[in-house]
Amino acid sequence: MPTATATVDRETMHQLFEGRRTTNLFSEGEVDLDLIERAYADARWAPTSMNCQPLRLTVLKPGPRRDAVVEHFKGDNGQKTSAAPMTVVVAFDPNWHEHMPTLFPHVEGLREKFAERLEFREKMGRDNAFLQAGYFILALRAHGLDVGPMAGLDAPGVDSEVHTETGWKTLMVLNVGHGPSEDENAQYPRGPRFDFNEAAQVL
């Protein structure tokens, strides 16, 4: 019989899930790009349909490019982002099918099959990139970073600033830093969560 996979200890699980919250305002200190790269190197092993891997990331350090992106945010999301040490625009590549000969080589003709199915590609790209984004957030936490995900933005506007050459399509933004600041609004009180028997059915 195959050997069972070892479980992760509760302390580690706490650091990844219950012990972490969305961070709005971060403590001072820069974020090393190497941590973002290492987090992606771990998150890339997330499952996706036919290994399509549509997730794309645009890393923005403080500066003119991020300032231009912030102009397309809603409410106080722009202020939060302007104050963050680093920002990652999470997007998907609607042309993910171009890479199928490399990513899923044992099935021939997938690139050609999906070439004319733009609506299908966009749905599949969005669905799988959101799945990858969840893993990426956990990977960032695992590397000691706090994360502030937000979707209150004009996605086409953000694309016009950073994705005109790639054609990627924005899904959300992740602000990243080393822990919350001392501001009382740095992290909001934790909201309730459903128990298993409220969120699941066993048939």
Rank of each mutant, 00 (worst) to 15 (best):
R66N: 05
E122L: 02
G157S: 06
P62R: 10
M172G: 02
R121V: 02
N95V: 03
S82P: 00
H14Y: 14
A39M: 09
T170P: 04
Y40T: 07
V89D: 02
T102P: 01
V173L: 14
V88C: 03
A84V: 06
L171V: 13
G152T: 04
E119W: 00
D9K: 02
F17K: 01
R10T: 12
T7C: 09
Y188W: 14
N51T: 08
L174T: 06
A83Q: 12
R141H: 15
T87F: 03
T5D: 13
G152A: 12
E184S: 14
L16M: 09
Y135R: 01
G152D: 04
P62Y: 11
T166A: 09
Q15Y: 03
P156L: 08
T102M: 12
E18N: 13
R190G: 12
Y188K: 15
T12H: 10
L110T: 05
P101C: 06
K61S: 15
F114Q: 02
T12G: 01
D76F: 15
K123S: 06
P85D: 09
N95S: 13
A46N: 05
M124I: 02
E116P: 01
M100F: 09
G19E: 07
D9G: 08
T5C: 08
G177C: 07
Q201R: 13
M50P: 03
A155R: 10
L16A: 07
E112T: 11
V147E: 02
F73I: 03
F26H: 04
R66V: 04
A91H: 05
R121T: 08
K61F: 10
A84D: 07
W168F: 13
N175Q: 14
A133K: 01
V202H: 12
A43T: 10
F104T: 07
E98S: 10
L25E: 10
Q53S: 08
V202I: 15
P47M: 08
A91D: 05
R10F: 11
P180I: 07
F26S: 07
L16S: 04
P2G: 08
N24F: 11
F196M: 12
K61N: 12
R21D: 05
P2K: 13
T22R: 11
R44D: 06
S49H: 11
D93N: 14
A115R: 11
E108M: 10
V107P: 00
A151F: 06
H99E: 15
D154F: 05
W96V: 03
D34W: 04
D42W: 10
P149T: 06
M100P: 05
E37Y: 11
E198A: 13
H143S: 00
C52Q: 11
M124S: 04
F104H: 11
E98D: 13
I36Y: 08
T81L: 11
F120A: 07
G177S: 09
R111A: 13
G75Q: 12
T164F: 03
Q132Y: 02
R38N: 12
V158Q: 04
E112H: 08
L35S: 10
T12K: 06
K74Y: 14
A4R: 13
V158E: 07
G191N: 11
R111M: 11
A43L: 10
